[in-house]
């Protein structure tokens, strides 16, 4: 499998390290429900067919973390983004007063 790194171009899988599910967000450690939130965050995964959003770290390349949308059956990758940018959008959206 090859991943199109937005920084480096298309590279083989052996340059990347898998960093897990990109669709979960690290919960607030001080919320009353923190224990069950973290349990879900660390352990609970739906093993769905189809597209997954995954974190891949370009370890042998530019060291950027990427959010890769990959079909787990066909391995066809439909989208790759720089994780830091996705994370910034995520954090901005989570700010109080945000409309999204």
């Amino acid at each position: 499998m090859r991943i199109q790194c937005p920084c480096c171009g298309e590279r083989s899988l052996d340059e990347f390290t898998y960093y897990g599910d990109a669709s979960v967000t690290r919960p607030n450690a001080f919320a009353p429900t923190a224990m069950s939130d973290y349990h879900a965050y660390v352990y609970q995964r739906d093993n769905r067919d189809g597209d997954h959003r995954e974190l891949w770290y370009h370890a042998a390349g530019c060291h950027a973390c990427l959010v890769v949308t990959r079909n787990v059956r066909s391995h066809i990758i439909s989208d790759v983004r720089i994780a830091r940018e996705v994370a910034r959008e995520r954090d901005a959206a989570a700010l109080p007063g945000s409309t999204s």
């Binding site: 770290y57 830091r84 910034r88």
Partner: peptide, 14 residues
């Protein structure tokens, strides 16, 4: 080191 990079880029990007 990779863990630290991951934390900086994904968990606390700002």
């Amino acid at each position: 080191f990779q863990h630290m990079e991951f934390c900086a880029q994904w968990l606390w990007p700002s």
